[in-house]
Amino acid sequence: MALIEFDHASYSYDASGRALDDVSLSVERGEYVVVLGHNGSGKSTLARCMNALVVPDEGAVRVMGLDTADPDAQVEIRRHVGMVFQNPDNQMVTSVVADDVAFGPENLGIPQPQIVQRVDRALEAVAMTPYAQADPAELSGGQKQRVGIAGMLAMEPDVLVLDEPGAMLDPRGRRGVRRVVRALNERGITIVHITHFMDDALEAGRIVVMDDGRPVLDGTPDEVFRHGPELRAMGLEQPFAMRLATRLRELGVPEQAAPDTPHLDVLEEALCRSLSNM
């Protein structure tokens, strides 16, 4: 059984059009899925369907077999699927960072010593340990975002759905989150990461590109990023390595030396190999 399954799911916020349009896809346990798409492509709605914040008008979304439209199943679904949102201000509830991170596990009825452990681990994972006793209101946007992520990590969900969590983080913060997310995935937590950052996308085993409420590309980074013209037409861009390789070929470097790959290390190796063959 798929962990998350979209079965011909459609959803409209209003009469102006469908935010999700007949989506069928499934996420298997242990996957690391990145969802790309321009603003308004439906990717945030897709994320919100995964923990029953949005319930489809037509079709169904099932989490571990539980129908998100079933009101009796929603609490359990949200225990399995943790959401991290774009704007952490909406997720801050207390005046001390550590209490904020503890809020979720406390609500789950976890014993106090375990909560302390989880909070410490979560704050360390997002490099916010020195701020454990700070007031969230005193933190910058990026710092708040990391506390928001720590709050979700402390719940230890099966699936972590991240809706552009890195939008406001600096490169170091984003790398930190990426490392945390990768480590969580290696421990078996399924990751669905909605992002605009190609560096984030390269981490994934699978990329789903949304456009007009539908998944239009679905595959490994190598497969998906090969569709340069389609991606550009959708307002997206290829990763740095592919743009560099394209420019190099325009400048006359042969394809063998500048292959079409999203991975910088692969491109660098090919370039150096061609140099030693000269």
Binding site: F240, R243, L244, R247, L248, L251, G252, V253, A257, L271, S274, L275, M278
Partner: peptide, 17 residues
């Protein structure tokens, strides 16, 4: 920048960047 980098590499590979 990407453009500067591409030109420098092309030049290094003798492609008259």
């Amino acid at each position: 920048t990407l453009e500067d980098l591409a030109r420098a590499i092309a030049k290094r590979l003798g492609r008259g960047g």
